[in-house]
Structures are given as C-alpha cells and as structure tokens.
Design a protein around this nucleic acid. Sequence first.
DNA 1: ATGAAAGCGCTAACAC
DNA 2: GTGTTAGCGCTTTCAT
Lengths: 346, 346
Amino acid sequence: MGILHPYTHSVKKKKLSLNDVATQLKVSRTTISFVLNGKAKEHRVSDKVVRKIQKFVKETGYQPNAMARSLRTGKTHTIGLMIEDISNPFFASIARLIEDKAYQNGYKIIYCSAGNDPKKATELIQMFEDRGVDGYIIAAPEGMEPELKALLKKGRPVVLFDRFFPKVDTDYVIINNEESAFKATRYYIQQGYKKIAFFTIPSSLPQMKARLAGYRAAMQKNRFTTRVKEIPFEFDNKKKVNAIAQYLKANPDTEAILFATNYLGVSGLEAIQKVGMRIPDDVAVISFDDHIVFSLCKPSISAIAQPVEQIAEEVINTLLSKMNNPSHKKKTLEIPTTLLIRESSR
Amino acid sequence: MGILHPYTHSVKKKKLSLNDVATQLKVSRTTISFVLNGKAKEHRVSDKVVRKIQKFVKETGYQPNAMARSLRTGKTHTIGLMIEDISNPFFASIARLIEDKAYQNGYKIIYCSAGNDPKKATELIQMFEDRGVDGYIIAAPEGMEPELKALLKKGRPVVLFDRFFPKVDTDYVIINNEESAFKATRYYIQQGYKKIAFFTIPSSLPQMKARLAGYRAAMQKNRFTTRVKEIPFEFDNKKKVNAIAQYLKANPDTEAILFATNYLGVSGLEAIQKVGMRIPDDVAVISFDDHIVFSLCKPSISAIAQPVEQIAEEVINTLLSKMNNPSHKKKTLEIPTTLLIRESSR
DNA sequence: ATGAAAGCGCTAACAC
DNA sequence: GTGTTAGCGCTTTCAT
C-alpha cells in the first residue's frame, strides 16, 4: 500500500550527484571535483579526463549541490543585506544596484527589512548567521551596536551604509549629512528666508543627528532661532501628515522647511496641501533624499540628492574586497550630496 | 611562522555543534535532536533530560547549523521571490508584505529582480534551485513557460502573480486586467471623451494583452477608433518620456490617455508637462497601478489601484498551503481592482 | 595523475 | 528511553 505524497502528480527527479557522475564516468569524485573547481592543472589531471568530464557536465547539466558544498567549505556565496524598508525608494534603488553588482560577482543577496526595530534586526542577523552568509551589508536601526560588535568579533565582513556607529569599528559608506543640511539651510538664508523649520524624526542615529547639527549650525551662525519639529518614526503616513499639518497651523509664519528624510518630505507635501499653504509662495520646501515625487510635483520640490549609484558601488566593492582580499584596509567613505534646486525654493 | 589570515584581528569563535552539546551534556545527539525538534514526547524522552537540554541550549545559545540540517532534510525554509524590478514601488510593496508574512511563518525570502530578461530569469531560477528553496513566488518575464514547466515537473511548489501563463498549470494570483481596463475606458467614454489613447509596452504577457483587450473592447463597443501606442520596455525613463511626448505632439487632438503600467504613467506625466499640455483641461489621465506620485501630483492622477495587501496575502498563503498541505487544491485567483477617480480625469 | 577516505553537522531508522 | 550508526553531497589531505 502506497503512502499519500504531497506531489503525487510529479515525482521529484532525483538530481545528479557527484557520485553519479563518478560512477557513470568511471572517474573518482576527487578528480571531478578538481576539474570543476579549476584545479585540474594544479593537480595535473590529464586533458583527456578533463574534456570527458566537461563534456558530461555540459550534457547532463550537472550542478554541484550548493548546500553540501557550503557545509563543507563554510562559504555560501550569499550576502545578507539588511535595510530599514525595501518599500522606501531610496533603499529599493540601492538594493537593486547592489543586487546587480553582487550577481555579476557570483554572489546572491538575501535581503530583509528590519524597520526601526532592533529586536527584529537582531533576529535577522541571527537568520543571516544561520544561513551562513559570507558578508553583511547593513543599514542598522538604533541600538544595534552590541550585535554589530558581536558580528565583528566573530570575524564577519560587515559594511555599513546610510548610517554608521562611531563605536563600531568597521567599514562604512555614508554621505556628508551635516554639511548637506548646512548647505541647504545656508541656501535658504541666502535667499532671504529666516523662519526656517526643520522636520525630523526622534532618533539618535548619527546621520539624523548630523543633519540636525548642520541645520543648527547654519541657523546659529546667523543668530536665527531654530525651529525643530520631531515626527515620531512609527507614525503611519496619515499620522505624519496630521502632525506636520498641526505644526504648520500652529506656526503659520513658517517661511521655509527642510525635511530630514524623503518620507517626511512626502508626508509634508500632503500636509502643506491640507492646510492650504502654497509652495513656494507661502512656504519654501527642501527635502533630504530625492524622490520621484519631488521632480514630478507641481511645483517641483528641491532635494538633497544622494548619489545612489555611487553608494551602492562603493558598498559592494568594499564588501567584496573585505571578503576576498586578505590585505583589505578599512575604508570609511563620506560621499557628498547634490543640492537640487527646483521650483519649491526660489 | 604563522600564516597571514584575513581576519587576524578577530578569530572566528567556533560555533557550538550538536556533538559539543552531546559531549558536555553526556547525552546522545539523537536525544538532543529529538528534543530540539519537538519529538521528545513521541520518543518518550524523560522530562529530566528534556529540561537539562533546554536549559543548556538557552544558556549557550546553541543553534543547529542550518546548512547541515538542510543538507540532511532537503528543506531550507527559504522561499525564492522573483520579480521584475524591486525598485518599482508596486513590486517593492508586494515584496515587503510577502517578506513579513513569510517571516511570521518561519520562512525567509531570497528575492531577485529579473528585469524583462528571460535569460537572467532562468539563471535566477537555477540559483534558487542551487540554494534549495522550498517554494517559488514568481512574476515571470515573457518566454518563461519552459522553465516554469520544468520547475513544476520537478515537483516544486510555484505560485505566480501579476502575470500567469495559460499553458503553465499552477496556482496564481492576478487581477482582472481586462475588466479593469474596460471599466476605465468606459468611464472615459461616459465622461464624453472620444479620442482616448492607450499607452502600453510591446508584450505578449497575458496581463498586458488583457489590458489592451479591455481597452479595445470598450472602444469598439462605442465604435471609437482605438489609438494604441507601444513604448519599448527597455527604454530608460528619458527615452520613454521622449517617445510619449513625440506621440502627443503628433496627435495633439488626444483627449484622454490610459497608461498600462505605473512607470508609463510616471513617464507620461513628464511628457505631458514637456509638451505643455495641461491635465485635465487638455488631456485626461488614468494610469494602471497606483503610485505615490499620482496622489501627490497637482492635479492628482486617477489610477487603477491593485489591492497590494490582498495580493501579497493570497500569494503567500497559497504557497504555504501548497508547501505544507498535502491535500492542497490548485488555486487561481483573479482579484478586482479599484478605479480611483482623482482630479486628472473629470 | 588518480583514488580512498575523513569529515562538515545534522536527522532518523534501527538497535538495545 | 537512550544510543549507535548510516548517510545527505561535497572538498581536500594523503597515499599510491
């Protein structure tokens, strides 16, 4: 009597194993392994045998079992990519670029969104560990120092981006946040604006602190009063819109706004619309991170654009070097942004 | 004399293995395995031993090696997710939702963007095979029928979404493309528009053909001349904008446009702006797939919104059932969309 | 030049 | 109830 099986309609063809190949070819597994791993020369395998093996492999489409190989070598050719939210276009583009570049180098990406939740982030790192990823690319939430340090202690190659931690000694790629915020604020001031508000999230993340610091520095240099409004990160879009709208109603004299992230900018646009202010006549707008919305809006919105391609490129190159190059030197990069002046701020 | 080692600054702590635990606890590996896999009862392991093992595991943080386990069981608790482009917000939101849901069920996602390239898609499927994913979620490019069939023949659980193939007999989740396009076109016609253009991509993908068919049906029902313009898929945004602008210049009498995808809609907005037409006075606009741009634009743009959460939910539930439920019945779902009328079409 | 054999860490059928 | 053991498929050292 047969046992019921989930896939009775289609039996799993048993995949060819190294053993099968060896039997059919009457060659030892060792030799095949050498040939397949490009060590034929090194081990002086005869050309005849090499050709025979290659022909067979090509015809049958034999592929070594990646799991067995990983178990043996400890390498998976997989990179763990942890970001805040894949549905944020900034992270999505970076992820896409990193994926492509990694793929070209024979690496696959396992990606995960950690939100702003250090607990989930920790679990994800554990997951990456379980899956034996060869390297880590991380845009970490707050409070991840201990986990990152633990990772480094275990000798894992880690590259941080978007945000770094002063106390975590590893490679990173970030932008010049403070200077970017400073320049945007200074630009406002040069245009004659005085009542410049800064919308941000309550965050101890260094990149957010740097942006705030840049804004503060520019304002204080001109002895202007700073106007900082924090919008809780966990708010959904509607709540963010309301919070921003409320501020604008309470402070109708606001002449210009600098948003610290693209999603705040997007919510901000909705809020400005909601309270009936006009851009740029009633209030000027600049947002961190460019976003397709900003260039298509009427009026178009000025933005501090991050060089996404360059960031992705540097991140993956640094990680590849770190993983494969024994003499890799720690590389910490701070890339400049571009202030794109559009219609919303003139 | 020591050998130079990539990570001399931090020796990899060797992870605890089942053997180590067994030795230290003076219990056999089998027993530990049983306890860890919830088969303690089944094999009548004594409570004393169970507690001892659990305590030890908790204290040391022992985690079974996922690779070894996978090698042995053939299960990886990983799902392969193949989409067109993770930087398209439609796919990005779906990916995020699927990721969350999978994670809650103990599954991880390996995701990959295949573009519109069947060759890359084939390679990615091979990669998924190598990595031994337990299930597949695929929004496949054109010409993937043979690979999908091969996958099914091997008994792999596959769920398609966004697009399906009539000749590929598997579960899928799509939207009612034809009806959605029909309704949008009919809406235009009811508003009194006659010269309604349809912008699409040259594609034999069923969902694109269905959208075109819906538009055609509505037009022909009213004996209106169809105006179909195909924009090559591989064009970058600038080229798309130019192609659309060119059409509009050549056909300035166009009264209304239906865009077959969100990225065409986004490029279209830029093109309309470029040729100096005003929305909705000169030309009305509706686009397939909602996009944050559409709700924030001035004027806001009408859209055929896909129920993203529902799609993601159905996709992952179907796959989980297919993977774990022997009596799973094939499930093919066609979910209705919502026509969001905004300022661009009244 | 080629092959035998020892694991990598785990699961589960089978003994005791 | 608990332990012994045979692999899963591969890489690599060592012997021939």
